[in-house]
């Protein structure tokens, strides 16, 4: 038995892989701001690096809002095409991931609205976004009571508002800092990111104690 595989020797793929090795070496230890500045100046390796590091998580993030993968693909493409068009005059970005997540969410909501799959208020209206699940991680600690506890936490998490779940997922699943969460969720202050998490956890605690 051999793992299933797909040969993909398209020319783009060759160039892509070669550049990626180089871009990794060059940018791995740089800060987000440095990478972004290089990208703004037209450095193709910087673009390669950003694409490589973030495109998968962007795709996954988009899947929390819509299951239309074609639409997510379009949105991701548009974002990068627009950014590349504006090179030379891009604003400073401190947290690339947060910035890309924010752009993607906007783009998806815009598209969904255009296709009138969505009411006017966008995200706040749709409470089905950002569903959460709990992996088997907990099994390992709470041996017997575990399954019951896991179900309880899972139900409780899904009773939170979509925004609260979004914040919690960014914090735990994506491992973002409060600052990055503020960027991704378009809060003007980091304080608001802390607040939404704290409120979400307090609600969670209440539900669990019931």
């Amino acid at each position: 038995m051999k793992p299933e595989k797909k040969e993909n020797l398209s020319p783009t793929n060759l160039v892509l892989t070669q550049n990626q090795k180089e871009s990794l070496l060059k940018f791995e230890n740089k800060t987000d701001e440095e990478v972004w500045t290089a990208f703004d100046r037209g450095n193709e390796l910087a673009f390669n690096y950003i694409y490589r590091i973030h495109v998968k998580s962007m795709f996954r993030y988009g899947s929390q809002i819509t299951c239309d993968t074609g639409l997510i693909q379009d949105c991701v493409q548009n974002i990068f095409i627009q950014l590349r068009d504006k090179r030379g005059g891009l604003n400073t970005v401190h947290h690339i991931k947060g910035y890309l997540f924010k752009s993607l969410q906007r783009e998806i909501i815009r598209k969904l609205k255009k296709d009138s799959k969505l009411g006017k208020d966008g995200l706040d209206q749709n409470e089905t976004y950002f569903p959460v699940t709990l992996s088997h991680e907990t099994v390992l600690i709470h041996q017997e009571k575990d399954e019951e506890f896991r179900q309880k936490v899972k139900t409780a998490l899904n009773e939170l508002t979509a925004r609260q779940r979004q914040a919690i997922l960014l914090l735990y699943e994506e491992g973002m800092s409060y600052r990055e969460i503020a960027e991704a969720m378009e809060f003007s202050e980091v304080k608001s990111a802390r607040k939404i998490i704290y409120r979400a956890l307090a609600t969670l605690k209440c539900i669990l104690k019931k």
Partner: peptide, 9 residues
């Protein structure tokens, strides 16, 4: 364990 187990559905 809660932090580690929270995942996108």
């Amino acid at each position: 364990s809660i932090i580690r187990s929270v995942r996108y559905a």
